[in-house]
Amino acid sequence: MDETVVVTPNWLAAHLEDEDEDEHENADEHGHEDPQVRIVDVRDAWEYDGIGHVPGAVSIPFDSYRDETDVDRGTLPGVDAFATLLGDAGISPDDTIVAYDDTHGVFAARFVLTALEYGHDDVRLLDGDFSAWNRDHETTSAEPETEPTTYAPDPLAREESPLVDLETVEDALERDAVFVDTRERHEFEEARLPGAVRFDWREVVDDETRRLKPESELEALLSEYGITPDREIVLYCNTARRISHTYVVLRALGYEHVAFYEGSLTEWLATDGDIETGESR
């Protein structure tokens, strides 16, 4: 599993220890080592405050980086709003960000996708979630001291972005692309894109450990559905939240041809796109 995409709790714990040892030796004028690991907790604020969080984590709740008004594309918050969020949290463009939630990583994966789209080079998903972290590592209720930054995003150009629009999806339907629907069975059977395969995003998660299944097991599982690295893959769900997790997992496995349909089925139905219905495997 590519550690530049997904990191284990032990990886994060080791880097926190290293930074505690080095922060005074390599500090800038604000007392920070730069660049460094910045941890983002995307749970609700009451969970961050009341239940506790990973030491050093800042709170950026899911609703704060999601905007249903399509100010940018789909439910992206807009480049200025996202820059303000990260700047207020003391994050700089050259920091390594590790995001987590307590829902197997699906909300944190949306943060990862958003940060990548706005040009943050090094943003990673914590393998597992807060509950997985809490089994072997300490938590805290203390908020870290942060110094606000002026965060300057560098959004990806359209041709560099994994996000694809309706026209691109229509074109892909004419090719040998694999359309992957990450929703639940009843949603899939009610309406889906033509020829799509259903791959519930939670299938990659081990229910006991709350972490991702072993890499070899994931590759075999994906292959059963025809989701292989040599194919063009188009991901969709309803509002592009659940596909964020699948997208990050595929990137961590080295898949290179993965398109992210931001409009997903919500846009497809609104534009009277062709659908299939009925039972599936």
Rank of each mutant, 00 (worst) to 15 (best):
M1E: 08
M1A: 14
D2W: 00
E3Q: 14
T4G: 11
T4A: 13
T4L: 07
V6W: 01
V7H: 01
T8W: 02
T8E: 01
N10V: 08
N10E: 15
N10L: 11
L12T: 05
L16K: 04
E17K: 14
D20G: 13
D20E: 15
E21V: 06
D28A: 06
E29P: 13
D34G: 07
I39F: 01
D41A: 07
D44H: 13
Y48D: 04
Y48R: 03
G50S: 09
G50P: 06
G50N: 13
I51A: 10
G52F: 06
G56I: 05
G56C: 10
A57N: 00
S59A: 11
I60A: 01
S64V: 09
S64Q: 13
Y65N: 04
R66T: 04
D67S: 06
T69V: 11
D72G: 02
G74Q: 03
T75G: 06
G78R: 09
G78K: 10
V79I: 13
D80W: 11
T84K: 15
T84L: 10
L85Y: 13
L86V: 04
G87E: 00
D88S: 12
D88L: 00
A89W: 03
S92Q: 12
S92D: 10
D95M: 11
D95F: 09
A99V: 00
Y100E: 01
D102E: 05
H104C: 09
A108D: 04
A109R: 02
A109Q: 04
A109S: 10
R110H: 04
R110Y: 04
R110C: 03
E117H: 07
G119L: 04
D121C: 00
V123K: 01
D127M: 07
D127L: 08
F130A: 05
F130N: 01
S131K: 09
A132W: 03
W133A: 11
H137G: 02
E138C: 04
E145N: 12
E147G: 06
T149Y: 07
T150P: 10
D154G: 08
P155M: 02
L156R: 01
E159S: 07
V164T: 11
V164H: 07
E167N: 14
E167S: 15
T168H: 12
T168S: 10
V169N: 01
D171H: 10
D176L: 09
A177V: 03
F179A: 08
V180R: 01
V180T: 05
T182L: 11
E189R: 09
E189H: 09
E190T: 15
L193G: 03
F199S: 02
W201A: 06
E208Y: 08
E208V: 14
E215T: 12
E217T: 10
L221I: 08
L222A: 05
E224S: 11
Y225A: 15
I233F: 02
C237Q: 05
N238W: 12
R241G: 02
I243V: 09
S244Y: 03
T246R: 00
T246K: 01
V248M: 02
R251Y: 05
A252R: 02
L253R: 00
G254W: 04
Y255E: 03
H257E: 04
V258R: 03
A259M: 11
S264N: 07
S264I: 07
W268K: 05
L269Q: 10
D272C: 01
D272Y: 07
D274N: 12
E279D: 13
E279F: 06
R281D: 12
